[in-house]
Design a binder for these strands. Structure first.
Length: 195
DNA sequence: TAGGCCATCTGGTCCT
DNA sequence: AGGACCAGATGGCCTA
């Protein structure tokens, strides 16, 4: 016979993040953004689809019991008392994993923002998408490398026996495909190729 | 309204 | 066991 003091198993409520009570980081402004997004998604009907099965463990604690009525009266029988606890633990781990994934993607987005801030953007009023950011970064790095090479060649050609400077290249880099080893001189026109 | 972009959830896999 | 990483699915928002 289970303990009679309560029908409910010990229950630790989950925080809003779905974690295990570690609390949301609030230091970064991006975390505020994440909190906003979180509050937005919590209101979304799409969040409901994640509540699989009939047992939502964010609901008040419950126990699987059965009331059997016999000639002598009713009796409560516990059915699979560990199953609900197991599902609750699984749900808690899933929510914690979701929170970690959100934080991971947040870090990734912060890295994308940093990358956007150091590469030229022709349309400064329009935020580069992630794929555009990567492509622009690739073009930008290639261009800087080429300028560096040209600078090195220009310095060395003053010395006797130096190799002649490379011929002018007017070819434009191919966007979206494999990196072009000879990018154009102006990264900004590479952005036009991206569109 | 279709398409692009994005955030989030989720399950799988690998690593510590 | 738990965390990191990844890819697929899904739905919301925005723009042409």
């Amino acid at each position: 016979m289970p303990p009679s003091k309560s029908l409910f198993a010990p229950f630790v409520p989950l925080d809003q993040e779905g974690g295990v009570g570690t609390g949301a980081p609030v230091a970064l402004h991006a975390d505020l953004h994440a909190l906003l997004q979180r509050s937005r998604t919590q209101e979304r009907p799409g969040a409901e689809r994640t509540r699989r099965g009939g047992c939502d463990h964010r609901d008040p604690p419950c126990a699987i019991v059965e009331l059997r009525l016999g000639p002598t009266g009713g009796a409560l029988h516990y059915l699979q008392p560990d199953k609900c606890a197991l599902e609750r633990a699984q749900r808690r781990r899933r929510l914690a994993a979701n929170a970690r994934e959100r934080r991971r993607m947040l870090g990734l987005n912060i890295a994308f923002d940093r990358l956007r801030s150091v590469i030229p953007n022709l349309e400064s009023d329009k935020k580069l998408s992630k794929s555009e950011t990567l492509q622009m970064a690739q073009i930008y790095i290639s261009t800087l490398s080429e300028l560096l090479e040209e600078g090195a060649c220009g310095a060395s050609e003053r010395s006797p026996g130096a190799t002649p400077p490379p011929p002018p290249r007017g070819t434009k880099p191919l966007s979206g495909e494999t990196p072009e080893p000879e990018p154009e001189r102006e990264p900004k026109s590479g952005a036009e190729d991206l569109r």
